[in-house]
Each structure stands twice: as C-alpha cells, then as structure tokens.
Nucleic acid binder design. Structure first.
Length: 267
DNA sequence: ATTATTGTTGGTAG
DNA sequence: TCTACCAACAATAA
C-alpha cells in the first residue's frame, strides 16, 4: 500500500499507537526485512526503548527513540501495520507496547517481504538523499527545473518517480498528477517548463489530498479510487477520449491521448 | 497457465 | 562520478 499518501496514513496510525510508548517486547525472525542487522540484534537494540517521534519523508518513516537512536522503515510494495491483531497472515515483526501500564501491540505485515526496517544511530544515506517531499515541503520549481534539465534521456514520468528528485512519488501519483497537469508522461524531463512543473506540483498535491481523504473514510478494498490509474480503455473523465497505456521505466503508465499534451525539447 | 502488481537495489555498461 | 537499463526480490489476483 505504499506511496506518499499511504505512508502518511501509516505515519498517523503509528503516531497514535506508538508515540510515548515503550517497546516491552519485540519479536522477529526475519533477516530480510530487518537489514542489515540480524533479527537478534534488532530485537536487543529496540527492546525497552520508548518512541518519541514518528516522522515521514517520502515513502520512508523514521521513529526517533529515547536513546537518540532511530528506526527507519520502508513498506516496500506490500507492507503495512496492524493494531492489536493476534496473528495476521504474513506477520513479520511484532512490537508489544507499554504506555503507562497500558498494553497494546503493533504488527508489521508484509507478504512479499520487500519492506525494510533499519535501526541506526544516525540518519541513513537514503533518508538524507531524498528530494523534497511534495506534501511537507514547498517545491522549489526553479531548482527542480535545473535538475531535470540534466536528465536528457528520461521521461518526466520516470524523473518524478526518482526519490532523489521528489520524495514519495510513485507510479500512481505520477500518473495522476501528469493527467491533472495535462502533460504527456512520455515528454522528456528536460522539455518541461517551470510553469509545467508548477502544474505538476499542484497535481501532486491534488492527488495526495484525494488519497488521504480516501484513507480517512476507511474505504480500503473498495473500487479503484483513482481518476485514470488502472483505467486503460475507459473514457477520460475530463475530455472523454479513450485512455491508453504505455510502459515507461518498466512501469505501466495510463494517459489520455486527448488532453495530455506532449512537450517537445525546445533546443 | 500466464501475466501483472501503488518499489527499491545492485550489477553492468556507457 | 553520473546516468540509464534490467534482473531480482515474493506472493497474490485477474
């Protein structure tokens, strides 16, 4: 479930469930998710610690602990957290919490095990290398344009999904934002203007807000909540043309050939 | 049975 | 060092 709005939803949950609570017991045997540490080391380092802060940048979460250490968490493709569940399928890491004598549990569930949990004494390189977060930070369009101009061979869609350029944008968000901005995803990154980038930034905020609202309604597992993602062959909700699909950077990309205009390099 | 999946990463080549 | 490409990771759903 993992792009910026989904991870933000997770952050809010973890904040409610964990902040101010102590890890009374931590249990895992998974040496894939809990990297680069061994599960035993992971358990030893976290047990007894209290969670002071739960923050997010892009698709990464950072828990700050009372000894100054941090726990970095990435949900991969299929990771999420459950609260007070006995034994969910694909349980990978279990945290038993104590907040002034009140007990509860938080379980990390991840069928494909692409997620990561990384305890560290300082911020990890990946976290430090993340670009601006389009929800939390104001996006500097000029600076973005300067970086994109150097990505000669890449499409704007691929560039938006590069976590060092913008943090938290994945396949859904980039697809939706480019539709909102009326820009063809196959346009070269170096060909989009600063006003295009402003439109993209607006499109990102628009899509993030919609998905957050969707989560707030508790609507998981319902119909496809997106405007064009996953809707190849349907009508464009804006102009009525038939939505098409291409592959960019190995990812399925839906777009509207009617109202998403291709930017060409000015040269 | 076949294909696709809301994501990263490590290797390779240029 | 930077950029681009691709296989790999693993389980499920259509």
């Amino acid at each position: 479930m993992p792009e910026l709005p989904d991870v933000e939803h997770t952050r809010k949950n973890l904040e409610r469930w964990m902040r101010g609570a102590r890890f009374a017991r931590v249990a895992t045997t998974d040496s894939r998710i809990v990297r680069p540490k061994k599960p035993r080391t992971f358990v030893n380092e976290l047990t007894g610690r209290t969670v002071e802060r739960v923050e997010r940048r892009g698709k990464w979460l950072r828990l700050t602990l009372d000894d100054g250490r941090r726990l970095f968490i990435h949900l991969g493709m299929t990771g999420w957290f459950e609260h007070d569940e006995t034994a969910p399928r694909f349980e990978r890491v279990r945290f038993e919490l104590d907040r002034r004598g009140e007990r509860s549990s938080v379980v990390y569930v991840d069928s494909r095990r692409w997620g990561r949990m990384i305890p560290a004494t300082e911020d990890i390189e990946t976290w430090k290398g993340l670009g601006p977060d389009p929800l939390a930070d104001s996006v500097d369009v000029e600076r973005l344009a300067a970086r994109l101009s150097r990505r000669k061979g890449r499409t704007i869609k691929e560039a938006l999904m590069d976590q060092t350029i913008l943090a938290g944008v994945g396949n859904v968000l980039s697809t939706e934002a480019l539709w909102k901005a009326k820009i063809d995803p196959r346009s070269r990154a170096s060909a989009v203007s600063t006003s295009d980038l402003r439109a993209i930034a607006r499109g990102l905020r628009w899509s993030i807000a919609r998905t957050l609202a969707h989560h707030a309604k508790g609507d998981e597992g319902g119909r496809n909540p997106f405007r064009i993602y996953g809707r190849k062959g349907e009508r464009c909700p804006r102009c009525g043309a038939e939505l098409e699909q291409v592959t960019l950077g190995g990812r399925t990309t839906v777009f509207c050939p009617g109202c998403q205009v291709r930017r060409s390099p000015s040269r």
